[in-house]
Computed example of a mutant assay.
Amino acid sequence: MIGFLTLAVIVQSAFAGNLVEVLQNDGETTLIALVQQTGLADALLGGEFTIFAPTNAAFAKLPQATLDSLSKDTTALANILKYHVVKGSIHKADASNELQLETLAGTKIRFNIYNHNHAVTVEGSNITHFDLTASNGIVHVIDTVMMPPTGNIVDLVAGNSQLSTLLSLVKTAGLAGSLQGDALTVFAPTNAAFHNLGSHVLHNLHSNPELLKEILEYHVVPHTEYSAGLYNREHLRTLDTRHDVIRLGVSHGAVTVNKKGHVIQADISATNGVVHLIDHVLLPARNHLSSILG
């Protein structure tokens, strides 16, 4: 005998429209227009797919310059749209923390599950509505347009002019290899943050590679923490030798780190994790550090 839930799923699938129709019925008019503009509608009807569908409000959050650029470059636009699509039907129940799925763009997207607030994200974007069933797949609604990362964390640091000091210190400490591991979060001090330490402290860091390595590792968390998963008074253990913790403050969307640092740009995705730019260099609470850095 077929159970009630099984029967309900069969009935729902029988009456569900295709993926494009489900998107239309859910009101994702901007996404539909872009899919049609790039000629992807037929492709979405030619197989079984899961779509992570940005809302109209998600597209409205994009800078106007980005929208203008994409409107002139159909290939780039199509690549971003493909980044929101994976083959097969992936239900909410299939998701696990740090699960990665390959998209039609050829790059991967990462699930994160945060138990404290029951948030589920994909590349840091909140999934606000799960498991809209179509006759040829599944739609999950997300609140932010996902942009394909251009490389791993080291590539990201190397390509950001605000992080040139950090890049130099990472090379000095021999940490580039460690930052190419998977599922990492880096709270990355800007050039200005290092400048605020003063030339004497920077000189001491350059002349003491072990100390430098310890301090840089204190900025790295060995799992992926997008801003959707951060919460007030959260303690995150780091990669440094004693696995010291950094302490977060979250209030009205603003994030502080160890009370003195502020996240000035959040959720910069890399292929192996996420980077948050901060305006302060973090130091573990150790007695021996004051004499070396003072």
Results as ranks from 00 to 15, higher is better:
residue 48 E to P: 09
residue 49 F to E: 00
residue 49 F to Q: 01
residue 49 F to V: 11
residue 52 F to N: 04
residue 54 P to I: 06
residue 55 T to H: 00
residue 55 T to C: 02
residue 57 A to P: 07
residue 59 F to C: 05
residue 61 K to T: 15
residue 63 P to M: 09
residue 63 P to W: 08
residue 67 L to P: 05
residue 68 D to Q: 10
residue 71 S to K: 11
residue 73 D to H: 06
residue 73 D to E: 07
residue 73 D to F: 08
residue 74 T to Q: 11
residue 75 T to C: 13
residue 76 A to I: 13
residue 78 A to V: 07
residue 79 N to Y: 14
residue 80 I to R: 07
residue 80 I to H: 03
residue 80 I to M: 11
residue 81 L to D: 02
residue 82 K to C: 11
residue 82 K to D: 15
residue 82 K to M: 15
residue 83 Y to E: 02
residue 84 H to P: 05
residue 85 V to G: 01
residue 85 V to R: 01
residue 85 V to K: 00
residue 86 V to F: 04
residue 86 V to T: 02
residue 87 K to M: 15
residue 88 G to N: 09
residue 88 G to H: 03
residue 89 S to C: 04
residue 89 S to N: 11
residue 90 I to W: 01
residue 90 I to F: 03
residue 90 I to K: 00
residue 90 I to S: 02
residue 90 I to E: 00
residue 91 H to P: 10
residue 92 K to R: 13
residue 92 K to C: 07
residue 93 A to R: 05
residue 93 A to D: 08
residue 94 D to H: 07
residue 95 A to L: 05
residue 95 A to M: 14
residue 96 S to L: 07
residue 97 N to F: 03
residue 98 E to F: 14
residue 98 E to W: 10
residue 98 E to D: 08
residue 98 E to P: 08
residue 99 L to K: 06
residue 100 Q to S: 13
residue 100 Q to G: 10
residue 100 Q to N: 09
residue 101 L to S: 02
residue 103 T to E: 04
residue 105 A to C: 14
residue 105 A to H: 08
residue 107 T to H: 12
residue 107 T to I: 13
residue 108 K to G: 14
residue 109 I to Y: 04
